[in-house]
Design a protein around this nucleic acid. Structure first.
Lengths: 119, 119
DNA sequence: TCCCATGGTTTCCAAAAAGTAACCTTCACC
DNA sequence: GGTGAAGGTTACTTTTTGGAAACCATGGGA
């Protein structure tokens, strides 16, 4: 594995998940396919606009499938693709790291902020 | 491992690395400690302002150590802390995933964009 | 006929992020 | 006393992002 490739890949990662909602939606869809409105309820307080926009991005990258159900009124179901599933597995590693180190992160922040305030 | 905790953790992750330069700097510092100007050269085209700002953020979260060397003029060395190192290890998993799936991501994008253009 | 739900899009606005360029401080050296 | 390097900070501007609210298309049911 060539370490040299990583810096360039970070740009791709930021394009993929470097916004406010993408990661949250991927995790939410990790529980199974959801319709637009149910997804919105679970990912609150996301706005309708940002939900639509973020889902387009995920669809565009092949991480999410969009299926229109033949109901009336038509319902739309969103589901992780296989690619989306493997991404979720990888993302869980970062999430687990964050969980394991949450206390240390918060302490570091407090220490740093306190020292800034003193100066 | 409770899946339910993940959505909340995504917020913390975005606070940590949800900007344009943090991830790139962490990877660049993965090669070893670097001084401000050398770090800037390697992470180009980052501006002086964003480099300083992003390093403050990393220092604040305890991911990076800042050491002023007793030289004239004083030089400043930045290095990943132990916490930063473990974070890098976790982040590499996402990077490897991106590398492994780069072609598929790009194809998905092309397909999606072509279809939008046709409409 | 009008209303409602679903799943959006559009418009307009405010806030946040990032880029550019100028400026600053300290010390060594000439 | 002027210059230059290192490592920043500040002020100003532009770009990007996100939120609120209004609007829209479809079709079923009262």
């Amino acid at each position: 594995m060539m370490q040299d490739d990583y810096p360039a890949l970070t740009l791709e990662i930021m394009d993929l998940v470097g916004d406010k909602w993408t990661l949250l939606l991927v995790y939410t869809l990790g529980d199974g396919p959801l319709r637009f409105s149910e997804l919105r309820r679970r990912a609150m307080p996301i706005s309708q606009k940002m939900l639509a926009q973020t889902l387009r991005g995920l669809e565009r990258h092949g991480m999410v499938d969009r299926t229109v159900l033949p109901t009336a009124p038509p319902q739309v179901e969103y589901a992780l693709t296989d690619l989306g599933q493997t991404f979720l597995s990888a993302a869980r590693v970062i999430c687990q790291w964050t969980k394991d180190n949450l206390a240390e992160l918060q302490e570091a922040r407090s220490r740093f902020d306190a020292q800034r305030l003193a100066a």
